[in-house]
Write a protein that binds this DNA or RNA. Structure first.
Lengths: 262, 262
DNA sequence: CTCAATTTGTTCGTATGTATG
DNA sequence: ACATACATACGAACAAATTGA
């Protein structure tokens, strides 16, 4: 067991994994720059107050993931630019949402389609409709999965174009549909952990942190026409917020193609 | 080592900790309700495909944290309502920000005051001013820490009322200050891991997930007058977003006391 | 009160992983 | 690389407490 006055006791995670996470963060935050040499084992021993073997185990983890490259007699070097891994920015308006999924090159993979599943559980506003269609799918970018979505779409609306809804992004279609008027749209973000299913589909470990987003869209009859639960690997995830935006609802139009403000 | 076809292999975290996290999530999501009995060891063995000993180690973790209570011959019961732990909602507008810190009963603890520290590193807009004052502090609610803040305030502004700035929430004072006109305010949220310092102050484990918020406020001279990096324990954290809010800046007034819309 | 069913707690043997010096 | 100590994980059997018949 390790020594005494460290802060590592609180967590029962193996020491070398805790250290590996701290090192990974050093690289992510560019305290240790891409391509640069990281401190020597002697220095790291003093910094983290753990044994040499523990440090080697931690570095072994990072090397296995291709994050560092070690050469005897030379040193350890950062071999992957983790500062670029946080590319996904969660849309914070309906317009952004339409733009985002339209712009990104994503591949949709239907995984399991218990087509006529139960209505959506919810922590939100609006009333449940009589029937829903459920889709479970994974979004990819460059062959790497970046989110797992479970979505319920109002039955009547889905049946207008089942093929389209099953194979393409749903939000843009909802917004474009004549006869559908979106009255409310909200989402909530929490930090949770990956379960077996999520871990498998997102290629992460069970218990790893994920961003859990819960999104609800309500039409002018006050009916929930879209309810989605989405999970993103924490490392890829980011939200940018403009604190000066108006807190009141504002313009009704969402189909607009207007870009940024002039 | 454990058997075969489980998904647990990907992570090198001890199996019992992975299981503990999954069970904790069951309780948090109220799949296992407060006060209710959770499945028996035999059932859990089949569900998670792990040995009795591993389950007991996992349950031991939860019992240690007061989350479950075990009685021989009776069963294991949920002893804490984790669905109430996610009370903190990150403000998403300047108005909310002012309201939030004003409303909450918080205790501010100055911890370390390298008063005239270096200017803020930034991933944002606006220009750096000539001098900053840095404060590092922890916010408490009911004697439990819920965030660690490192904030840089423009030197000139800080010196107007150093006592006030050091001991009270900063944002409301900035907003109320005459002669200061807030032109931009943005924040970014990421999911990172607790380092030794953060873990100590927030009473969590090293490597545990935290919500990392980076907030910048710029005045009408395009100068950064406030730059903060804030860390929240992931379990307490939540963001609620209204997707229908206008994407364009909107009203300038922020000192207003107007409540919700009528 | 006793009995049986249920459920958690304990122990043994064995193997591997983690951590120190 | 070695010696040592402790933690993790399995399976299986057995012990002890609780409940209700």
């Amino acid at each position: 067991m390790h020594s005494d006055t460290t802060v590592f006791q609180k967590s029962r995670m193996p020491l070398y994994l805790q250290v590996a996470k701290l090192m990974r963060h050093q690289i992510e935050s560019q305290a240790w720059g891409f391509g640069e040499q990281i401190p020597t084992l002697d220095e790291l021993e003093r910094t983290y107050r753990v044994s040499r073997i523990t440090l080697r185990a931690a570095l072994g983890q990072l090397e296995e993931m291709g994050i560092v490259r070690r050469t005897r007699g030379l040193g350890t070097f950062v071999a992957k630019d983790l500062s670029q891994e946080r590319w996904f920015k969660l849309p914070t308006t309906l317009d952004e949402l339409v733009e985002a999924v339209a712009d990104l090159k994503i591949r949709l993979l239907p995984i399991e389609e218990g087509s006529s599943s139960r209505p959506a559980p919810s922590i939100a506003c609006g009333e449940l409709g009589p029937s829903y269609r459920r889709l479970l799918r994974v979004h990819y970018r460059d062959d790497t999965p970046y989110c797992l979505i479970s979505v319920h779409v109002d039955g009547e609306i889905f049946d207008v174009a089942p093929q389209e809804f099953s194979s393409k992004p749903i939000i843009p279609q909802l917004v474009a549909l004549r006869g559908v008027r979106i009255e409310q749209a909200k989402q909530t973000m929490r930090i949770t952990v990956a379960n077996e299913t999520t871990a498998r589909h997102l290629d992460i470990g069970v218990g790893d942190p994920v961003a859990h987003v819960c999104r609800t869209i309500v039409d002018d009859r006050n009916r929930i026409i879209y309810y989605a639960e989405i999970e993103y690997p924490a490392q890829m995830f980011q939200i940018e917020m403009d604190l000066m935006r108006s807190a009141t609802p504002a313009p009704r139009r969402t189909r607009t193609t207007s870009k940024r403000r002039p």
